[in-house]
């Protein structure tokens, strides 16, 4: 059990660092409609869609903390918002335990929108200058659409990262 936890922690660290580097080097430099696609957030919601709300919360919190540590936000702020995103995406498991790719993508997109929208509100609450502006109307659809597109690619990575085994279904033969 403990060895399994350590393995998951190591995977989260390596995948998280790589995702963060991709975010900083690739997606931060190439905005779409002036919006930076959130690759780390897409990974979080993919992990949530693959593993459920609790795993999504943990993945979101840890990757969010890494995001905070590399940036300018107070430590824990993105952890909180990304945790919320992971929980939201993980709700797909209340509908079906093994969601189809498109259903997982829809919940991932919703989770990404919730997580991204939570950031300016959390900044306002924590005394930072939040950006609750009309730019959110552009940011949220782009971030959500990107999460929708990236989700099918990132779900296997999220599943591996969080140590989730894919369920195998067998037909009942009478």
């Amino acid at each position: 059990m403990r060895a399994g936890m350590s393995l998951v922690a190591a995977r989260v660290l390596i995948v998280g660092l790589t995702a963060l580097a991709i975010q900083r080097v690739v997606f931060a430099q190439h905005p779409i409609f002036d919006v930076k696609v959130q690759f780390v957030l897409a990974l979080v919601v993919a992990a949530g869609a693959a593993g459920g709300a609790d795993r999504g919360a943990v993945a979101g919190f840890v990757l969010g903390l890494m995001y905070d540590a590399s940036g300018n936000t107070p430590l824990g702020l993105m952890g909180l918002c990304y945790g919320l995103a992971g929980i939201t995406a993980g709700y797909v498991h209340t509908i079906t335990p093994d969601p189809q790719w498109w259903l997982a993508s829809i919940f991932a997109a919703v989770g990404a929108v919730v997580g991204e929208a939570a950031i300016p509100f959390a900044e306002v609450i924590t005394g930072e200058s939040g950006w609750v502006t009309r730019e959110l109307m552009v940011v949220l659809p782009v971030v959500g659409a990107a999460a929708f597109v990236l989700c099918p690619l990132l779900v296997p990575i999220g599943r591996w990262m969080m140590g989730v085994k894919r369920k195998k279904w067998k037909a009942m033969i009478e």
Binding site: F61, L75, G83
Partner: peptide, 18 residues
């Protein structure tokens, strides 16, 4: 428990960092 722990830890870290 996990969700509450995540929220409380995040709040604690934000307070410490601020």
């Amino acid at each position: 428990r996990i969700i509450i722990a995540v929220v409380l830890t995040a709040m604690l870290l934000i307070t410490l960092d601020k």
